[in-house]
Amino acid sequence: MAEPTGAPGRQPRATSSGPGRVLIAVYAIFALSATARAGVQIATKFSEAPVAYLLSGLAGVVYVLATIGLAGRSPGHRRLAWGAVVFELVGVLVVGTLTVFDTGDFPDDTVWSVYGRGYGFIPLVLPFIGLWWLRRTSSKG
């Protein structure tokens, strides 16, 4: 039987369809590069800058979770994507601001340093696009 609220216009659209696939591709590349880089840093020279490398690792995990959330189709995936993208936005703003004012504890070594300058500022733009896309595809939109 059809669900009572099954009017097609009110269903959330899949985040993994159409232009969403481009967004997922960008997130996947960041997930791959950030986790790979952090993995090497933590494995080979962790003691040099533990805070920065742990942060790199955390950023990598957040990108992985955002990729999984956006690629999935269930409400749980959507919640995961929301959480990861919001965390990503807060992360890039906080780390970016801290690194602009004080580079002491953060060598310019994480994805989020100076608002993602080392990555063409894509880490700063990406969460805004992510939030816009999640909102656009949600049932409320």
Binding site: S17, G18, R21, V22, A25, V26
Partner: peptide, 12 residues
Amino acid sequence: EPTRWGGTVIAV
């Protein structure tokens, strides 16, 4: 998913 966006995914 064969849509126009496939080309952009390849570009990324």
